[in-house]
Amino acid sequence: MSKWYIEKGEQGDIVLSTRIRFARNIDEYPFPSKLDIEGRRRVSRAVHDAVMGSSVGSDFSYIEMSSLSRSQAVSLAERHLISPEFACAGEGSALLITNDESVSIMLCEEDHIRIQVMKAGLALHEAYDTADKIDTMLDNSLHYAFDERIGYLTQCPTNLGTAMRASVMLHLPALTKTGRLSALAATISKLGLTIRGAYGEGSGSKGDIFQLSNQITLGITEQAALDNLNAITLQIVTQERAVAAELIKIPTEEDKIHRAFGILKNARLISNDEFMELASLVRMGAARGILDIPIEKINELIVTVQPATINAAQGKSLEPQVRDKIRAQSVREALNNV
């Protein structure tokens, strides 16, 4: 089954994916940081029963986080199926995930319930509709912590209100290289949005991939937040395309793209950082029609050659150089057979 993070969706030359995340808590239990292992287990079990007993229950698998190896857990975070923090979650925390990996529900992360829906490309309203249905279904069987004045009650007060975080993953090589992104970031924060590295808080931006998301959750409706994010995403997409079109006219810049493609097709050892840097150039070349390769190939590689995902696929923790060799081989195979 083709996963959402490989497919090319709306505005797919620049927008890799869309994510909607709802934070919810069950009224009768203290928030996760005040729960012991037994309490976390009870919460996870309660949500498990609510989901599995519903009409969509058969789509989900239930995974206890303590049953995963470190590589398996981090690999889930590399694919953005869980948050990086949740990869370290211990006993009592669990994950409900659909077979196509488009819906994941983290249990006892920062909040009791984190419903997350992912779609390829720009698809904010579609992703919202899916998340909304699951949320309403859970609301029917669980007693959510909610207050009419401040909305859904969350462990961190920054999420109060709708407790919805909507984000789009953007590939912005041209805006980054020309230094325009920092000016743009300042404007974006004035509009109630935030832009940061692909893995969220505290992460750098490998491969010129950024996450744009709504910041304010109290006092604004879900629809207004989505419309706002959608409009600004489209503006950034237009700007990135225009700047990229100018950039590739410069001979040295065009040359960099072809050289990057040459290295990726021939390297015998490649670190993740070098791969991400070159893949960004190649992806820009493919998006702008300089290189004749499907963009889905690069989307797929960006996910499958991440360190923990390689470890997880090999079933053991490998030395960095062994990984670099496997990575180089996967990249060569993918790019030479197109």
Binding site: D132, Y144, R149, I150, L160, G161, I216, L218, G219
Partner: peptide, 14 residues
């Protein structure tokens, strides 16, 4: 943090 203090969005059934 939020500027406004009046929830204006989806309402829980309960």
């Amino acid at each position: 943090i939020h500027g406004r203090i009046q929830h204006n969005g989806k309402t829980s059934l309960k």
